[in-house]
């Protein structure tokens, strides 16, 4: 760890101020969205802009779930379920396959290993949207347009290479000696993996899972092409329901954006402990 050596207080304050400005610029749009979720529609386009909601309301959220008299509800609950099912399924599959793949890359030698690894990385360089047309055509032929399954397959394909890459790194940090010691202690290779290597890689796997989940949860470009109806539309795609031909329901859209952000935040906080707790590798010199 290199340490910043900043002697003079004014330099420290300058840096803090700089960080504050940068963070403020980054956070303002997000903050605006959150604030807008709690204001009545008339405040949104007011000039000059009203920052703090003058008449804070939960009406926008009520409307989303059809609990308000003002307007008929959107199928947000269904979108939420779709998003959860698609994100969780694709994450689980990506983590299981990624873990197996990462372990293989970290521990075994096999033909074409370097090439395969490179290919996985290159697959990350192709922007997903570039594939949307061929994907759409193939998915349509296969009859999996507008199904959760169709999106799950796409998100698995996006997440698996990255998960392999991440878990490969984590397994590499665990010395092979540990598994060997466990096998001498009486374990089968399988037991040695689950009792020794898996617990040690757990924090790494948790971060891989978070990345995979957030990718699927937030993905918009492909989902907007491959989904049509409440059968498979996800939350980000659902946001567009708030745009009519000539008007945009900004408050409703913001309320829904908040609903999208919350699970992601909660999950990140839960797993964060794992991410940071990172086990100390004291067993091996």
């Amino acid at each position: 760890m290199s340490r910043l050596s900043i002697e003079k207080p004014w330099q420290r304050w300058l840096i803090r101020f700089g960080v504050f400005v940068a963070m403020a610029i980054l956070c303002v749009p997000g903050l605006w969205v959150v604030l807008t979720a709690f204001r009545p529609n008339i405040e949104v386009l007011a000039r000059p802009a009203v920052w703090i909601p003058q008449n804070p309301t939960l009406d926008n959220f009520a409307r989303l779930f059809g609990l308000s008299s003002a307007q008929q509800g959107l199928p947000v609950a269904q979108y939420f379920v779709n998003s959860l099912v698609i994100s969780i399924t694709s994450t689980l599959v990506a983590v299981v396959i990624g873990m197996a793949g990462g372990y293989a890359f970290a521990r075994y030698r096999f033909k074409g290993k370097a090439t395969l690894f490179l290919a996985f990385m290159l697959s990350r360089t192709v922007p997903g949207v570039a594939l949307s047309l061929p994907l759409f055509i193939i998915w349509a032929r296969l009859g999996i347009i507008d199904t959760s399954f169709g999106l799950i397959v796409v998100y698995m394909a996006i997440n698996i290479p990255f998960t392999i890459w991440l878990t490969d790194g984590f397994f590499r940090q665990i010395p092979v000696d540990l598994s060997e010691a466990a096998q001498i202690d009486g374990c089968t290779p399988w037991q040695a993996f689950w009792r020794i290597e898996f617990p040690l890689a757990r924090s790494g796997l948790a971060s891989a899972a978070i990345f995979a989940f957030l990718t699927s949860w937030n993905e918009y470009a492909l989902a907007s092409q491959l989904t049509r109806t409440t059968a498979s539309k996800t939350m980000p795609v659902g946001l567009m329901d708030f745009t009519a031909q000539f008007t945009v329901d900004w408050t409703g859209m913001s309320a829904m954006a908040v609903l999208i952000i919350i699970p992601a935040l909660v999950l990140t906080f839960i797993v964060q402990k794992h991410l940071i707790a990172g086990l100390t590798f004291g067993g091996v010199k």
Binding site: P175, D177, L178, E180, A181, A182, Q183, I184, D185, G186, C187, T188, R195, I196, P199, L200, L279, T280, F281, G282, G283, V284, K285
Partner: peptide
Amino acid sequence: PRARNISMVFQSYALYPHMTVRDNLGF
């Protein structure tokens, strides 16, 4: 290895980092 009734001390010691000394010994 598990069927040979041997034990081995590694140069790196290869202690299980997530287990206490007691659990390492009893594993």
